Simulated scan of single mutants.
Amino acid sequence: MSKVTRATQALTKAGIAFSIHTYDYDPDADSIGLQAAQALGEPPNRVLKTLMAEVDGKPVCVIVPSDREVSMKKLAAAFGGKSAQMMKPANAERSSGYKVGGISPFGQMRKVRTAIEETALAADYVYVNGGQRGLQIRLVPGDAKAALEATAAALVA
């Protein structure tokens, strides 16, 4: 597995400190994020999942703890929209340039508006996907927010 991805390159270019952690990705896991948390020996609220969604038909990136679900109403409100829905997997892959299970908020093919669950910002560190299945990046959540120019909002149901 390569430990250099568009995500790690974007963080390096931005001058953001991070470390790389690998685990055995299970494509049959009920929840990829929860499986990653268990494999890393971390609580699920520290391992954030990256989801691609649409608000009023426009693509957005959403980062929430792996043990929580996104509230579509709260997501739409975070971007000043009326409605939100999850993106179909094929569209998420096309928009982000990453495979589902390996979607990182960093280094996506197209820059999209991003929101991060505000409670995640209280942690000393979090993990986000590094751009490959089985590759996680550990970093300070405030650094992730700054690098992504993300909106912090209450996003979970």
Score class of each variant (00 low, 15 high):
Met1His: 09
Lys3Pro: 06
Val4Asn: 10
Val4Pro: 07
Val4Tyr: 01
Val4Gly: 07
Arg6Tyr: 11
Arg6Lys: 15
Gln9Trp: 05
Gln9Phe: 02
Ala10Gly: 11
Ala10Glu: 09
Thr12Val: 10
Lys13Tyr: 06
Gly15Glu: 04
Ser19Met: 08
Ile20Tyr: 00
Ile20Arg: 11
His21Tyr: 05
Asp26Ser: 08
Asp28Leu: 12
Asp30Thr: 14
Ser31Phe: 10
Leu34Asn: 09
Gln38Asn: 14
Gln38Trp: 13
Leu40Asp: 03
Pro43Leu: 06
Pro44Cys: 07
Asn45Val: 13
Asn45Arg: 14
Arg46Val: 05
Arg46Ser: 01
Arg46Glu: 05
Leu48Gly: 01
Lys49Leu: 04
Thr50His: 09
Thr50Met: 14
Met52Gln: 03
Met52Arg: 02
Met52Lys: 01
Val55Gly: 03
Val55Asn: 07
Asp56Met: 05
Asp56Lys: 01
Gly57Thr: 03
Pro59Gly: 12
Val60Ala: 07
Glu69Leu: 08
Val70Gln: 01
Lys73Phe: 00
Lys73His: 01
Lys73Ser: 06
Lys74Arg: 09
Ala76Thr: 01
Ala77Thr: 11
Phe79Cys: 02
Gly80Asp: 00
Gly81Phe: 09
Lys82Trp: 12
Ala84Thr: 06
Gln85Leu: 08
Met86Asn: 08
Met86Trp: 04
Lys88Asp: 13
Pro89Met: 08
Pro89Val: 13
Ala90Ile: 09
Asn91Tyr: 03
Glu93Asp: 06
Lys99Met: 10
Val100Arg: 15
Ile103Phe: 00
Ser104Gly: 04
Pro105Trp: 07
Phe106Asp: 04
Met109Ser: 15
Val112Phe: 14
Arg113Gln: 13
Thr114Ser: 09
Ala115Arg: 07
Ala115Phe: 05
Glu117Lys: 08
Ala120Asn: 10
Ala122Val: 11
Ala122Gln: 15
Ala123Ile: 04
Ala123Asp: 15
Asp124Cys: 12
Asp124Arg: 08
Val126Ile: 14
Val128Arg: 06
Val128Glu: 01
Asn129Arg: 07
Gly130Ser: 04
Gln132Val: 04
Gly134His: 06
Gly134Glu: 05
Leu135Cys: 03
Leu135Asp: 05
Pro141Gln: 06
Pro141Arg: 02
Pro141Glu: 03
Asp143Cys: 01
Lys145Gly: 13
Lys145Cys: 13
Lys145Gln: 15
Ala147Thr: 03
Ala147Trp: 13
Glu149Val: 13
Glu149Leu: 14
Thr151Tyr: 10
Ala154Gln: 14
Val156Arg: 10
Val156His: 12
Val156Gly: 12
Ala157Phe: 12
Ala157Pro: 15
Ala157His: 13
Ala157Met: 12
